[in-house]
Amino acid sequence: MNHKKVQRIMCEMGLKCEKFTRKSRYKSYKGTVGKVAKNRLNRRFNTSIRLQKLVTDVTEFKCLDDRKLYLSPIMDLYNSEIISFGLSNKPTLDFVIEPLNKAVEIIKNKAAYRTTIHSDQGWQYQHNQWVKTLKKNKIFQSMSRKATCADNASMENFFGILKQEMYYGEKLVSYEGLKQHIIKYIYWYNHVRSKAKLTGMSPVQYRNQSSQSVA
């Protein structure tokens, strides 16, 4: 059903969604502690080429017993698909390197053009290991300008959608329980959830259809 029709019906019935009221943001910026790359992406978020432009970031969630869960996804701007992600109770370097290594394997096998990975200036992305991994695999590094969320709006938008649809307004659960919820959500987001900009298809459906069209 068209989203405008849903909005009209909700207005007629006096209904309001309360999940769009809370916001939380993890900040990993600790100053210049390594190499800061230029902003190659420069808010050009659209691409018709798979794996040409990737974006990443870290966000946090609260769990029961004052524990926290951190999520580090890598998104392909071609179809908004989450191609890899990491989950941890601490925002360590290994936590972001793991999904990067998974993404690198996909890039090696599937990318037709040189890839650019965009992030903020978080300390993990300035770290020598992150920078060397990109250079070793001939991947361009791109970074947002300091304190400029709009430079990575696509990733911020994904975090907002995820939290609005499966986290905000819900009771706090255990770390392991939330971890499983997020894993299931990302699968659903990739394979089932339709997107207007993908002509009503899910990211994976759009990718598969495009592959068949090329073939």
Results as ranks from 00 to 15, higher is better:
Asp76Glu: 09
Gly200Pro: 04
Ser88Ile: 04
Glu176Lys: 14
Lys19Ser: 12
Glu18Gly: 06
Asn109Gly: 04
Tyr189Glu: 11
Leu100Gln: 01
Leu51Met: 14
His191Val: 03
Ile83Glu: 00
Pro73His: 09
Asn190Ser: 11
Gln52Lys: 15
Tyr113Pro: 01
Asp76Met: 11
Arg114Tyr: 05
Val33His: 10
Thr116Asn: 08
Pro91Arg: 00
Gly160Asn: 13
Glu105Gly: 08
Lys38Thr: 11
Ala37Val: 12
Lys62Thr: 04
Ile106Thr: 15
Thr148Phe: 07
Lys90Trp: 00
His3Asn: 14
Glu98Val: 04
Thr56Phe: 03
Thr148Ser: 14
His3Val: 13
Met75Ile: 05
Ser72His: 02
Ala112Leu: 12
Lys102Thr: 05
Val33Trp: 08
Val58Pro: 01
Trp188Lys: 11
Lys195Tyr: 00
Arg50Ser: 15
Phe95Gln: 02
Val96Arg: 02
Leu54His: 00
Leu172Val: 02
Ala215Leu: 12
His3Pro: 00
Ser202Met: 07
Thr115Ser: 14
Ala147Thr: 06
Cys149Ala: 13
Phe85Arg: 04
Gly86Ala: 09
Leu41Gly: 03
Asn109Gln: 14
Leu15Phe: 05
Leu198Glu: 01
Leu41Ala: 07
Met13Leu: 15
Gly14Cys: 09
Ser174Met: 08
Phe61Ala: 04
Glu165Gln: 09
Val173Leu: 05
Tyr189Ala: 09
Leu93Trp: 04
Ser154Gly: 06
Val58Phe: 07
Asn89Trp: 01
Arg8Cys: 04
Asn128Trp: 07
Ala147Asp: 08
Ala147Gly: 14
Arg40Ala: 10
Val55Asn: 03
Met1Ala: 09
Ile186Arg: 09
Phe45Gln: 10
Asn42Leu: 08
Glu165Leu: 02
Ala103Cys: 07
Thr92Lys: 13
Asn157Met: 12
Leu71Pro: 01
Asn101Gly: 05
Asn137Gln: 05
Met166Ser: 10
Asn89Ala: 12
Leu41Pro: 04
Cys17His: 02
Lys27Gly: 10
Lys27Gln: 13
Phe95Pro: 01
Leu71Gln: 04
Arg40Gln: 13
Val96Ser: 07
Gln141Lys: 08
Pro203Asn: 08
Leu54Ile: 02
Tyr125Glu: 11
Ala215Arg: 07
Pro99Ala: 13
Tyr113Thr: 12
Leu71Ser: 04
Trp123Gly: 08
Cys63Pro: 00
Ile106Ser: 10
Asn46Cys: 06
Met10Phe: 04
Trp188Gln: 13
Gln129Thr: 14
Ala37Asn: 11
Leu162His: 03
Gln209Ser: 11
Gln52Ile: 05
His127Met: 11
His3Thr: 12
Ser48Tyr: 12
Met201Pro: 01
Ser210Ile: 03
Ser194Val: 13
Thr133Asp: 07
Tyr26Cys: 06
Leu51Arg: 01
Lys171Trp: 01
Ser210Trp: 05
Val192Asn: 12
Asp120Val: 01
Glu12Gly: 02
Asn152Phe: 05
Leu77His: 03
Lys5Arg: 15
Gln164Met: 10
Ile97Met: 15
Val214His: 09
Gly31Thr: 07
Lys163Ile: 13
Asn190Tyr: 00
His181Asn: 14
Val6Arg: 10
Gly169Val: 06
Arg25Ala: 12
Gln52Asn: 10
Lys5Tyr: 08
